[in-house]
Design a protein around this nucleic acid. Structure first.
Length: 198
DNA sequence: TATGCGATTGCCT
DNA sequence: GGCAATCGCATAG
């Protein structure tokens, strides 16, 4: 099932509802176990859209329920689901999940992972496992080979500070990381490296 | 135009 | 546990 209006709310409201959802990419299906919410213009210093619309983040200002992809650290692609109504911005970063179908295909793409839990544990790892690239940015996740299927029932979840978000006024104080408790595919929490104090 | 760093990962010690 | 890899984006000048 896919309900567009589900995504037309703030990313913090949407994020826990994505736990247990299936992200389908061709033959490979991911069960989402960990996400992070990023809000919009002027609301969230950790968000790519904090300073307004740019060429990179423009899809976050479009129709909710689409895919926002970005390139980082010179080598990695991460995937978000666009939230909040068109004209406003926000997104939910898919941080980790369990491959529930097409495990052999995903493992072939992820030749460095040794265990099945490692296949899609981490935002850049799961895009490799699902073969999601920058070219998939803007895709409508309602239908097609790359799509999102919402869970029938809400999952239990825990929340805490986001990973990789700087602590000094960067929005690390907000508990906008959500995960399914006890799931082995949830990435271990790692606080952002503190900046040097002169 | 120049420069610093990031919503990370994997290899090295 | 520590750090290199690697380049697009945003900010400063």
């Amino acid at each position: 099932m896919f309900d567009r209006s589900f995504f037309a709310r703030t990313s913090v409201e949407v994020a826990p509802g994505l736990l247990g959802a299936h992200l389908v990419s061709g033959e490979v299906v991911l069960r989402i176990t960990e996400v992070e919410a990023y809000l919009g213009v002027g609301e969230d210093p950790g968000s790519h859209s904090f300073r307004g619309r740019t060429n990179r983040n423009q899809v976050m200002f479009g129709e909710p329920g689409h895919l926002y992809t970005y390139f980082t650290y010179g080598m990695h692609v991460c995937a978000n689901v666009v939230c909040s109504p068109a004209g406003t911005s926000g997104g939910v970063l898919i941080r980790a999940g369990e491959i529930v179908e097409g495990r052999e295909i995903a493992a072939a793409r992820r030749h460095t992972s040794r265990t099945s839990a490692d296949l899609a544990r981490g935002p850049a790892r799961l895009t490799v496992a699902l073969a999601i690239t920058l070219a998939d940015g803007g895709t409508d996740l309602a239908s097609g080979p790359l799509r999102l299927e919402l869970p029938a029932a809400a999952s239990d979840y825990e929340s805490g500070p986001r990973t990789g978000v700087s602590g000094d006024g960067g929005g690390a104080e907000y508990p906008w990381r959500f995960w399914i408790p006890g799931d082995p595919t949830v990435s271990p929490y790692k606080a952002h490296a503190p900046k040097k104090r002169p």
